[in-house]
Design a protein around this nucleic acid. Structure first.
Length: 627
DNA sequence: CATCGGACTTGTATTCACTCCA
DNA sequence: TGGAGTGAATACAAGTCCGATG
């Protein structure tokens, strides 16, 4: 098998995309053009070929991504939903905080509302937030405010430093512990209750179709956990009342009932927005929304739009490149390595290589083939000038590729590699995007252990392979000459490991036999037979394996080693990069899906279940699909 | 012409739930 | 068998974009 290694190249950027779709803009009827017509035809044919019978009870799944849709700012025509779910009222626990213990302080009597605020803080004792002075200051100011509002008689609380929240802290921990210790039935019941609520609030009907709602819960009260140096971190986030909430719903829809004894603040019927409910939060006065879930068609559509925009940009870049190659006979320009001269061609032009002179002149200055300087000022057509302006727009700067959308990292996938090798290639491309976006993470603390565990796993397989090789040679000693590799000892398989491994194997075998014995005795007990002290020595009927079987086994083991090695390399290279964000937000899922099809890699090696759900619209992209 | 804020998308901390090993 | 460790799900804060406003 040809061995191809996948190597990271130095500085060519993979394609990334940042959302541009901000819905305020309401462009006039603009069509999203996708290769839809042929697709629809194809779909139909497939249906006829294989009449599907599964899911017949479910209504036909809508493939919105195959529909032509006008983007006129209207997001829906009919909308029905259940409104938001409010958090349950506070249930006081009666556990009292202490104040000024050193001076014979006593447990403090608080009203439920004040107790609730105290408990918010108590829960955070010892955490980063709890220890943050700004957080403490803000919390305490609001705590005092609450005490005042509650008109608690003779409340002694004046200083944060004299407060002792540990009784509440301990109590909350105890409750948490008890929750963990709940019986299976109790847990199951709780889960079912949650699912029942989800069934009601988790769905809405938009344009006659059932769509998943994202966060249908009104955010519960608590302490604002502003990150970094946020000046308001720790402030009390008040309980939201229905009177503060705006419901957005179809004009003909039934307005959901507000909680008993309450009414909605406002009811609107704005079909140019996607939110179902909205309220103002008291700490930063920012608006909070209830939106549809990421898997909904609305979100999917805007996601797709985002990537279509990026695709457009690529087409623009290709066209502009072609224009120069055609007009000025520029060389195409390949990727070059670190150790080669920094010369460029058209596609590898960088930011600093051209300057724009209004209204329509472009000045080239770069080193071309054989490091010959190319300086030229040319007049270009308006469209090209406009394009170049876009390609030089911020945040692009000196050193960046002008035509950054043209190179695809995924081309480096080894077509004849194993699945594991291909996945590694994919992850490397994904990683470049993540590195580019600076999606870093701390190296997981168990990384070392995990790596050595993987090493051991590989060694264990190598050990097995060694044995199989020996068996082959015993069966057919003549192979020693023909296939000397069978004689070669496995790499890294040292005596120390073999010893350790054999002991482990022996122990495992012993355990297995013990279990067998127990089982056997149980059976005998039932049948009233006499019990055994040890299993009868198995008749060593070990049939001598055939050459065919041994060869097959050798191959499986070799494959397994290969796959595990790949996994290890992947894991190690990935230890300080978080792939999630780029996979969720920046990489066009159609690129990934098409890649999977092209290289015969199962989709689930790349996308987990929820991502497959979110990107349903992209999952069918066939192998010829091009960004 | 700067700034504000509504409506979204993106990023990250926390919680949940599952797995795997001692 | 339970408990540590993990990746997925969730919650919500933060960032972005762009039209409105004055």
């Amino acid at each position: 098998m040809a061995k191809r290694t996948v190597e990271d190249s130095s500085d060519d950027e993979p394609m990334i995309v940042k959302s541009e779709s901000n819905q305020q803009a309401k462009p006039k009827a603009k069509k999203i053009k996708v290769e839809k017509k042929e697709k629809i035809k194809k779909e139909k044919e497939e249906k006829e070929d294989s009449p599907e019978k599964e899911d017949d009870d479910e209504e036909e799944e809508r493939k919105w991504w195959l529909e032509e849709k006008e983007d006129n700012g209207i997001k829906w025509t009919t909308l029905q939903h259940q409104g938001p779910l409010f958090p349950p009222p506070y249930e006081p626990h009666g556990v009292k905080m202490l104040y000024d213990v050193i001076n014979q302080g006593k447990p403090v009597e608080l009203t439920p509302a004040a107790e609730e605020v105290a408990s918010f803080y108590a829960a955070l004792l010892g955490t980063d937030n709890g220890n943050n002075p700004v957080f403490q200051k803000n919390f305490f100011a609001d705590f005092l405010k609450t005490i005042k509002q509650e008109k608690i008689p003779n409340c002694p609380i004046k200083e944060f430093s004299k407060c002792d929240f540990t009784p509440i802290f301990d109590y909350l921990n105890k409750v948490k512990e008890e929750k963990k210790q709940m019986s299976k039935e109790e847990k199951k019941k709780l889960k079912e209750e949650k699912e029942a609520i989800d069934e009601i609030y988790g769905w809405c009907t938009m344009d006659g179709r059932k769509e998943k709602v994202g966060n249908y819960r009104i955010e519960p009260p608590g302490l604002f956990r502003g990150r970094g140096e946020h000046p308001k971190t720790g402030c009390l986030k008040l309980r939201v009342q229905p009177e503060q909430v705006t419901i957005n719903i179809g004009a003909d829809a039934k307005i959901p009932d507000p909680p008993k004894g309450h009414s909605w603040g406002t009811v609107s019927h704005d079909n140019t927005v996607t939110w179902l409910a909205m309220w103002k939060e008291n700490v930063n006065e920012s608006t909070k929304y209830i939106f549809l879930a990421a898997t909904s068609s609305l979100k999917g559509q805007s996601d797709m739009k985002k990537f279509e925009k990026a695709r457009e940009l690529k087409v623009r870049q290709l066209a502009t490149c072609l224009y120069f190659i055609d007009k000025l006979a520029l060389r195409a320009g390949n990727e070059k390595g670190e150790d080669e001269a920094d010369t460029v061609g058209c596609c590898s032009l960088r930011y600093e290589h051209i300057t724009l002179e209004p209204p329509n002149k472009v000045v080239f200055d770069f080193l071309g083939k054989d490091s010959i300087r190319y300086v030229n000022t040319v007049e270009v057509i308006d469209q090209v000038y406009k394009n170049l302006k876009i390609f030089k727009k911020e945040p692009k700067t000196v050193g960046d590729d002008l035509f950054d959308r043209i190179n695809e990292e995924l081309r480096k996938t080894p077509a004849d590699g194993t699945i594991a090798e291909k996945v590694l290639a994919y992850n490397r491309a994904n990683r470049q995007v993540a590195v580019l976006c600076n999606h870093q993470r701390a190296v997981p603390k168990s990384h070392g252990t995990q790596m050595s565990r993987l090493t051991d796993k590989i060694l264990a397989v190598k050990y097995q392979r060694q044995e199989v090789k020996q068996q082959i040679l015993e069966l057919e000693p003549s192979l020693k000459k023909q296939r000397p590799e069978l004689l070669e000892p496995e790499s890294d398989l040292d005596d120390e490991f073999i010893k350790r491994h054999e002991i482990a194997l022996e122990e495992k075998e012993k355990e297995r036999l013990e279990k067998l014995l127990i089982k056997e005795n149980e059976k005998r007990k039932e049948n009233g037979e006499e019990l055994l002290n040890s299993l009868p020595e198995q008749k060593k009927k070990q049939t001598i394996p055939t050459m065919d079987k041994l060869e097959k086994k050798l191959q499986t083991l070799t494959d397994r080693i290969q796959a595990q090695k790949m996994q290890m390399v992947d894991k190690d290279e990935n230890k300080q990069t978080a792939l999630g964000t780029s996979k969720i937000n920046y990489i066009d899922p159609r690129i990934s899906a098409a890649w999977c099809n092209k290289y015969n890699v199962p989709l689930d090696k790349i996308f987990n279940r929820s991502l497959r759900e979110k990107f349903k619209w992209a999952m069918e992209s066939d192998k010829d699909w091009e960004f």
